[in-house]
Design a protein around this nucleic acid. Structure first.
Length: 493
RNA sequence: GGCGCGGUACCCAAGUGGUAAGGGAGAGGUCUGCAAAACCUUUAUGCGUCGGUUCGAUUCCGACCCGCGCCUCCA
């Protein structure tokens, strides 16, 4: 495996190699659980998931850690407004996040939570104070002194040299030495959630969380740190400053950032009316697999324009993939052909080459679709033999270990979100499209198989009226019927 | 203002110093009792605009236009 990845730190595409042996230690910034996850969040998490899956496919053992930010200003404010504790407030959104990530087939990383590591954060800050990298202000808050860390700006390529002396910074209204200094620890305000610690009462700043938890789980230097592009500055820059100041060692070696997406050509925002959570889309009748496919169809460093038209197209693409796999599971004449085996091998190689190239998912998809067209043509001509199936299935399964859209558990996931919507009093958001898809789960596989058999029998007897009637019933139940050379196939809408 | 990314067919979107992947949609056709699926053909002398370098540029350089991101915790 020769994966080449863009490293934000070097601003170049570099060959990725773990620091030690065959294990990749990676840390990803996770969600702040104050609301349901939106598709922008999930673009980033899916990009990281693709990376993780590809590393695993390449034979690496991946230790993938992700934090849950379960305390921050917004959470404290919202919880207080709702009359709940911080933990009560965040529990609901944490649960929702894991469900949604699961629906999108994101492999779950090892989870660490801010609120479970507060003592360690306080100790970390105490050490920074001892070393002169941090200082306490009169109100009991702590700040990092960026003037002590000359490399500050190396990730985001910002030049703070002129600010080191603080000459042009108005510091009068702050207690900070320099306006750029960032909070490590915030002193409690009256009525706010607060934790006692070796450095006094308060709560951790956002940046310190990730430094402490990543190094706790992965060591002082580890392989890769990921997040959305907005985190480059200040979050990741600050993590580097804190961590490298404390240890004197390089922190993460690779920095992986996913580009933001646009929705219908605009920045996603609540005010623009183009803000969608995963659940919003499912209620409109879009399948999780469709959403995942769309989010993987543009390489992670390119801006992705998320549109409803794009969702329709993605759905068609996923259907094509699933139809193909289903067709490959059919019966073929004995024998095998060099052409098909070679095609399978070439496709695997194209797939690997595409993903090796900074995870070019679009090219990977093109490789698999090229194969699908060629194999469909061969099947139509009767040129695919039973001995070819394994060789053709191999690249398809390799593809799916990365993209993960073939296995159809969409209806179960949608059913769960449907129940949730009813429980939350959001019946009015449940679309007719969603209800139609859910109807397709009313019949069991055995019941459908039986109906299909009746239909085939009627057709053999040239009783087309009966055959069409059965087919119409199945279609009304959301079951799609296909006649192929290899027999009658069905699938749920 | 500073730093950075991008503008490719009807839509989404790869890509390359040597003549434009893939998916979707549309049109025509094959197969089929009819559907559906699948397959075939077809849709950019053209890759934001204008210059430049080059035997040759969509690909490199420059200017301009447009979109987007970051520059006080938004993935």
């Amino acid at each position: 495996m020769a994966l080449r990845l863009f490293n934000t730190l070097s601003a170049k595409v570099e060959e990725f190699r773990p620091l030690v042996g065959n294990e990749v230690r990676m840390y990803a910034c996770g969600p702040t659980v104050y609301d349901y996850g939106h598709i922008g969040n999930f673009r980033t998490f899916i990009a990281v998931d693709i990376l993780r899956r590809y590393l695993q496919l390449g034979g690496y053992k991946v230790k993938h850690v992700m934090n849950i930010t379960d305390v921050d200003d917004k959470i404290i404010r919202n919880a207080a407004a709702a009359g709940l504790t911080v933990q009560q407030y965040t529990a609901k959104y944490q649960k929702a996040f894991f469900e949604d990530a699961g629906a999108l087939r994101i492999e779950q990383p090892q989870i660490v939570r801010a609120t479970e590591n507060i003592a360690r954060m306080a100790e970390f800050i105490a050490k920074l104070v001892e070393m002169g990298y941090a200082y306490k202000t009169d109100d009991g808050s702590y700040y990092f002194r960026i003037a002590k860390f000359p490399a500050y700006g190396k990730l985001s390529k910002k030049d703070f040299a002129g600010m080191e002396d603080g000459a042009r910074v108005d510091v009068d209204e702050y207690e900070k030495d320099n306006a750029r200094d960032f909070a490590l620890w915030k002193a409690p305000k009256p009525g706010e959630a607060s934790w006692d610690s070796v450095i006094g009462p308060g709560r951790p700043g956002w940046h310190i969380e990730c430094s402490v938890m990543s190094m706790q789980e992965l060591g002082e230097s580890f392989d890769l740190h990921a997040g959305g592009e907005d985190l480059i500055f200040p979050h990741h820059e600050n993590e580097i400053a804190q961590s490298e100041s404390l240890t004197g060692k390089p922190f993460a070696h690779f920095w992986f950032h996913a580009r933001f997406l646009l929705v219908e050509g605009e920045k996603m925002s609540k005010s623009a009316g183009n803000f969608f959570t995963l659940r919003d889309l499912v209620l409109k009748g879009y399948k999780p697999s469709t959403i995942r496919y769309l989010l993987t169809s543009v390489p992670y460093r390119n801006q992705l324009n998320f549109t409803f038209d794009g969702l329709q197209q993605a759905a068609a693409s996923v259907d094509r993939l699933r139809n193909f796999r289903q067709r490959l599971a059919g019966k073929f004449a004995d024998g095998s052909s060099l052409t098909m085996t070679t095609l399978g091998q070439q496709t695997s190689k194209r797939l690997r080459d595409a993903l090796d190239d900074d995870l070019n998912t679009a090219q990977g998809q093109a490789a698999i679709f090229d194969m699908i067209r060629a194999v469909n043509t061969a099947m139509d001509a009767g040129n695919v033999k039973s001995g070819d199936v394994a060789a053709l299935l191999a690249p398809l399964e390799q593809f799916d270990r990365i993209f993960s859209v073939l296995q159809d558990d969409d209806v179960a996931q949608m059913q769960r979100i449907y129940e949730w919507a009813k429980a939350e009093g959001r019946e009015k958001d449940i679309s007719a499209e969603l209800e139609e898809i859910l109807r397709s789960s009313a019949l069991t596989d055995a019941q459908i198989d039986a109906k299909v058999e009746q239909m085939v029998a009627a057709r053999k007897a040239r009783d087309f009226a009966t055959s069409d009637k059965i087919r119409a019933e199945l279609v009304a139940q959301g079951i799609l019927i296909e006649q192929t050379k290899e027999g009658v196939l069905w699938r749920r809408k």
